[in-house]
Amino acid sequence: MSLLRGNELFRSGDLDYVRDQVGRVFCPHRLELAGHGARLDARMRTKWLRTIGINLVGYGGEVLVGPGLLNDFLVIMIPLTGHALVRSGNEDIESHPGLATIPHPDRPLTMRWSADCVKLIVRIERSCLEANVREHFGHALDDRPIDFRPDMDVASGYGAGWANLALTIAHDLDDEPSLFDDTLLARTWEQILMLSLFRAQSGFGEPESPARSQIASRRHVNAALAAIRHRVDEPWTIERLAREVGTGKRSLQSAFQDAGSTFTGELRDARLRKARDILRVSAPGSVNVASVFARCGLQHHGRASGRYRALFGERPTDTLQR
């Protein structure tokens, strides 16, 4: 098989050596030959984008593989030839070239590979996947870990599209130079792999009821406003605020728009309220408006003064002189 031909990690019939080399890429695991007289002719090819590993693995003999818990990463295993019985927790999946598996990282994993089974295995760090999903889909996760279905149809639908994408990347990684030698492109395609996997396997994207969506939006806006107003001195950005309230950047921006506001507008108004509090307790001549505005993070004096008057019905100099 020519896939990843320029990235061979090993080819060996030594059981201990194979176990060690595969374990270095994935995790320590049990590896045994299945059946009397079984032989091993294992090979592994590996190439990393940035944090995602693209691997081709075949054992050349019937084997039992027992990684146990994966914990910190996920594997998407697509048989290109042969078949494998995959047990993830209490679920058994008979995997074949039309049916990939994504074992749950928190459930014990055991597998029995046929002698002719060769798999394309995509390794994704769990923390990277969850961070990207939260950033782009926000409320789709809430505070729950990602929980994919353990089987994925790669013969049709979204699953087929995802598998074709992974295969396309694997083929390109053999080219010299490869598109994915570029750090920015590699990062972008990693995001595409992760987000499209989530879309294919989570069921996310089904229409949400308007009432439920509005309740979630109001909750996030209220939490965001409370954070800004109570900790106005902090260097808020929309990304940081979204993480603070447990949603994504785009979801929070949309929620502000639905409420008839914007993040930048609310942050500016909170800083103006702080500036007003300072001006009200300051003696005339002890401070000036420009210095108070700068202290409160208000960079554009003219625009800030205009908004101040709209909010409070007086100029900032009037507040200071009272």
Rank of each mutant, 00 (worst) to 15 (best):
R144N: 06
L320V: 05
D151N: 05
R229H: 13
L109Q: 08
A216R: 15
I52N: 11
W113A: 15
D318Q: 12
K274A: 10
E234V: 09
L184M: 05
P79L: 06
L129C: 04
C296D: 15
T81K: 04
L320K: 03
R303Y: 06
A304E: 01
K119H: 13
V63K: 08
N288F: 04
V22G: 01
L165P: 02
A34W: 02
G302L: 05
L70A: 07
L56K: 06
L165G: 02
K119V: 14
E130W: 02
A38V: 04
D14C: 09
F256G: 00
R112T: 15
D269K: 11
R45K: 14
Q191C: 11
D14Y: 03
S305E: 04
F10K: 01
S261L: 07
L129K: 05
D277M: 11
Y59G: 09
Y308S: 09
P210D: 00
E314C: 13
L64P: 00
G138N: 03
S12R: 08
I238G: 09
D72Y: 05
K249R: 15
G302M: 02
R126A: 03
L80F: 12
P235H: 13
L99I: 02
V221G: 00
E135L: 13
S178M: 01
L141I: 05
E91M: 04
G37F: 08
L197C: 07
V22E: 02
E125A: 11
N288Y: 09
D277L: 07
A216G: 00
G23Y: 01
P210S: 00
L241G: 03
R87V: 14
D181W: 01
H136N: 12
C296S: 14
I121D: 14
M194D: 03
D106Y: 12
L279M: 11
L31H: 10
M77E: 15
G203T: 07
G66Y: 00
G61Y: 10
D16V: 01
